[in-house]
Simulated scan of single mutants.
Amino acid sequence: MTFLFSAVLAHFVLEEKLHIFGVLGCALCVVGSISIVLHAPQEKPIHSVKQVWQHATQPGFIVYTFLVLIVVAVLIFRYVPRYGHTHMVVYVGICSLMGSLTVMSVKAVGIALKLTFSEMNQFKYFETWVFVLVVTVCCVFQLNYLNKALDTFNTAIIAPVYYVMFTIFTILASVILFKDWESQNGAQIVTELCGFITILSGTFLLHKTKDMGNDASKDKDPPLVESPNHVDTPSNTDSHR
């Protein structure tokens, strides 16, 4: 619900108006998210950092990681200079793609901390420090481009779009890494896909109508200003008496 509160606070605190289609887009995102959460696959128990490393070094996740890095590089060097200030998907896409790698690494670091506090030191393994490095680098990228997105576009629109894209890529990365959907039946998968479609519909609506509030404000008639040329002057008819 973070994106919903962000949109509401941006509307009232920052005075970045959220029009009726923005409200509808947020509602669709909420409904889709609830559908996905209620039918999400059960997470497999992870007992060590080395177990996460084994999953992360499988061919499927390695391919996903390389694809993410390639797409992010293309977005940064090719599309940010051209479309960064006109298409919010460019900045948000960079944050979301890097965020999917961040979450996977944060999970490994969290497991390492938990086991270390239980007197099973995980920081003696180089795998733990690799995950720490990935978290640091990805967070720097996310903060940089998320701040650029918030400086350029309406916060009330960026919040839900970022939430949706971040969630989609994170779930995709988790599915590839841990293969969580292997234990699900067809009905659960179809329901989750419907939730994804609902979320994408809300995101599309938000993106297509992001400038509606600004256009409405521009169309307002400017205030009438009295012309300075029309100034009453006293008559000089009696000056030659």
Rank of each mutant, 00 (worst) to 15 (best):
156 A>I: 07
149 A>R: 02
102 T>V: 08
152 T>G: 09
133 L>M: 12
106 V>P: 02
110 G>D: 05
113 L>Y: 04
145 Y>A: 01
133 L>C: 15
128 T>H: 01
147 N>L: 14
121 N>I: 05
137 V>K: 07
108 A>T: 02
137 V>R: 07
155 T>Y: 12
131 F>C: 04
125 Y>A: 12
119 E>M: 10
140 V>A: 14
155 T>C: 12
118 S>Q: 15
125 Y>P: 03
102 T>M: 13
97 L>H: 00
119 E>K: 12
149 A>G: 11
92 V>K: 03
143 L>A: 13
153 F>T: 05
131 F>D: 00
142 Q>H: 13
147 N>T: 13
126 F>Q: 11
148 K>P: 02
105 S>M: 04
154 N>M: 08
107 K>M: 10
117 F>W: 11
121 N>M: 08
108 A>H: 01
124 K>I: 13
100 S>D: 06
102 T>P: 03
155 T>S: 14
142 Q>R: 15
92 V>Y: 03
109 V>C: 06
140 V>L: 15
134 V>P: 05
99 G>D: 01
105 S>A: 15
107 K>V: 10
97 L>G: 02
121 N>G: 03
132 V>P: 02
156 A>D: 04
150 L>K: 11
95 C>W: 00
134 V>T: 09
116 T>A: 03
134 V>R: 06
98 M>T: 05
91 Y>H: 14
144 N>H: 15
115 L>Y: 08
147 N>H: 11
119 E>D: 12
91 Y>T: 02
143 L>F: 12
142 Q>Y: 08
139 C>G: 10
131 F>I: 02
121 N>E: 10
91 Y>L: 05
91 Y>F: 15
96 S>L: 01
133 L>H: 09
114 K>C: 06
139 C>Q: 11
93 G>Y: 00
